[in-house]
Design a protein around this nucleic acid. Structure first.
Lengths: 291, 291
DNA sequence: ATTTATCATTACTTTTCGTAATCTTTTAAA
DNA sequence: TTTAAAAGATTACGAAAAGTAATGATAAAT
């Protein structure tokens, strides 16, 4: 590894053009500067200075070294100064969650970013297993999941309840079992699970969603209600996904006698102190998930 | 300045998660690793590791330090490896010249760049005084000038002759003095100087260009012949600028009995060894300026 | 030609670095 | 609970290096 002290002497020398004055600038002796440059040359195995008597000019390697070293030295000294800082409204925060939460949160987090432009929101939609994996591998900072993670590296705490809703086309007044079976089921990646939870608690006729007539499928959370609004079937979805659907006139969300909700968990790396900006974003998320 | 040896120990520790194994990886003792981390923390005045018994996790500052330090250390080791290299077809070459030469050279240099995509051509058009200033300040690598520089830092060597041409609208067969005076003069930044050289040697009537009827001016080298091609006046220009003019049917360049040419000088920083890519570009330039 | 300014070299002092040995604490096992 | 082991922290010391003062050599200035 290049010795950065020698490198700094070399760069200062290039700027000052004078060994003695460089030494003064760096609070050392001329001899020291001379040795630093020579050691650098020895280590790199290249001439850096073309010496012409007491004058010198830069060799090709010297030019290159100086040009690139400046950036590196600057980065190093910036790092030294800023490493202790922990600004709550600056830097990138990487989140990952299943679609329904994301649909709810992402717009609010973007509006947080427009208030604090240095706070960069990186939000990815993915199913639970991907979320916990990403947290464990530290490729994201904050995750939301609809089930507790089983991984040791992931710490999960409940932060909200997501109501599950039965959604039919707006034309359906009373969603009795007969009506649902006639309509057919619009499925999504968690569709079977959600349907089991909500319909199992509200319809004695329910056995398993695989017995439904299946009328469609989408893994694009924002699009699942599209076929429902066209009268093509019914779906079971978290409330957040329903709220975010734009063509709300085409659909009807039904209040069933036995409400069912899923717990939403906040997932962060266990045993790692979060930086201030993460807490900023978590606070904002809680606000909107509970409000 | 942050000690990069300590920094490397810290980064390796973060990756390995284990003091003893980090020590093995770095061919040193566990005690050394421990001290390096402690010294870093002391120097930065921040906790980097949150120690939980023999486990540890990164503090906020630790995360930040690790994230940024990796890039810096990588850059340092890359620099170490590449500083001795001097590839003739890679890197940026910054040139500056007056318009006429630029008009000639720039297309050829661009085609050189398309043959060697890593060789980046940065070509700026500017008058002689700006060129020598830029060379002296090392903001460009290679300059072309139509006069020797007076600055000590700039080394000038003649590399080509630029013929000066009298250019009139195509309708003019014989450019006698009367005709020129009727047409009027289209001026440019070096117009007066060029006219003095060429017309002074060929017309006994010539006294000074300020006595011409002045019919136009442009400092955009590619556009000076525009008014000439429209029959609005005559101009005196280096041959290269004339060759590069697209609407050549509208103009006529006249061969006078006493040809005059200007010497073109290559300007480089004095006492500085040029890198290989500079010589590549200089060779290419010579080829086209003399060919 | 002489003086002065500047850089290189060398011998020596001071500082820093890294290790071995030891101590302390945590974790696991008995 | 006690004991054993494993891992990191601490400390003292020898080795290495960094930096200086003194000196030498050479180029520039007068």
């Amino acid at each position: 590894m290049i010795n950065t002290t020698w490198l700094r002497s070399f760069c200062t020398l290039v700027e000052v053009g004078h060994f003695t004055r460089t030494a003064e600038r760096l609070h050392m002796t001329q001899s020291g500067v001379s040795q630093h440059v020579r050691k650098l040359e020895e280590q790199l195995g290249t001439e850096l200075l073309v010496r012409q008597g007491k004058q010198f000019s830069l060799s090709g390697a010297g030019e290159k070294l100086y040009a690139e070293a400046q950036d590196i030295l600057l980065a190093l000294s910036n790092l030294e100064q800023t490493v202790g800082e922990d600004p709550p409204y600056e830097g990138t925060v990487r989140l990952m969650s299943p679609g329904s939460v994301g649909l709810k949160l992402y717009p609010h987090l973007l509006s947080l970013q427009s208030k604090h432009p240095k706070l960069i929101i990186d939000y990815r939609f993915a199913p639970n297993p991907d979320v916990e994996k990403a947290i464990a591998e530290s490729t994201v900072d904050i995750g939301f999941m609809t089930a507790k993670s089983t991984l040791a590296e992931v710490s999960c705490t409940p932060i909200a309840q997501e109501s599950l809703l039965l959604v039919t086309p707006a034309t359906v007044e009373e969603p009795d079992w007969e009506t649902l079976m006639t309509l057919g089921f619009i499925d999504h990646p968690d569709g079977s699970h959600h349907a089991g939870l909500l319909l199992g608690a509200n319809y004695t006729e329910f056995q398993h969603s695989s017995l439904f007539p299946r009328k469609g499928f989408s893994n694009q959370i924002g699009l699942i209600l599209e076929p429902v609004s066209l009268g093509l079937g019914f779906a079971v979805l978290p409330a957040h996904a329903v709220e975010a659907f734009e063509k709300s006139e085409g659909i009807k969300a039904h209040r069933l006698s036995h409400p069912v909700s899923e717990t939403l968990y906040l997932s962060v790396p266990r045993n790692r102190s979060l930086q201030a900006r993460m807490n900023t974003v978590i606070a904002e998320a809680k606000r909107w998930l509970n409000g």
